[in-house]
Structure formats: structure tokens, C-alpha cells
Amino acid sequence: MSDIHVVPVKIYVAVFLTLMVLTAITVAVAFVDLGALNNVVMLGIAVAKATLVVLFFMHVKYGTRLVPLVAAGGFFWLLILFGFTLSDYLSRGWLGAGTPWMR
């Protein structure tokens, strides 16, 4: 029964410090002009931070296989919402008349 996985404190502290460093980087990079890359870096760092929290603080790395599947399913459905909605807005200008919505 007591086969619960106890994550060592060291790992928690390491994750916390990494999150702090990533936060510092994301703020610093925001003031540097990287063109379109600014958004990529910003979101990349946010995804990395979220992944760390999910894997270690939320114990997904140590749980049953079902839990990562459930979590991934949630994000996948989010992508369906984003992707299909954007498919409308992105293709509105294709007829050449411009996007009426963009004014």
C-alpha cells in the first residue's frame, strides 16, 4: 500500500530554481528585439515552465499512464479549438477581397 512515490526535496528545489531562472530569462528576452522570434521564445519558455510543473510538482512523471494521457488530451482538445477557429479567420482573405473583419 505504501508504494507511493515520494519525490525527494532536492528535486522540488531544483525545479523551483529552474522556474526562477526561466522567469528571469523570459523577462530579459522581452526587452530584446528578436522580431517574430520574441513570441516563439516567450511561449517556448512558458511551455517549458508549465511542463516542469506538470511533470514534477504534479507528479505526472511518477503516476499511472492514464494521467499523462488525460492531461495531453486536454491540451489536444485546446488545439482543436484554436486550430479550427483560426482556420476560419486565416482563410477569410483568400478570396482576394481582403478580410472584411480586419477592417
Binding site: 482543436i80 479550427f84 482556420s87 476560419d88 479567420y89 482563410s91 483568400w94 478570396l95 473583419w101
Partner: peptide
């Protein structure tokens, strides 16, 4: 979950979507 736009054919949605 992949078909909701069929309620919006006359809403101003892009014809490609």
C-alpha cells in the same frame, strides 16, 4: 468536435473553412 462550423455556413465564415 471537428464539424461545428456547419452551423455557420451563412454567418460570414470563410468559405474555405
Amino acid at each position: 468536435f471537428l464539424v461545428w462550423g456547419h452551423h455557420m455556413f451563412v454567418s460570414g465564415q470563410s468559405v474555405y473553412a
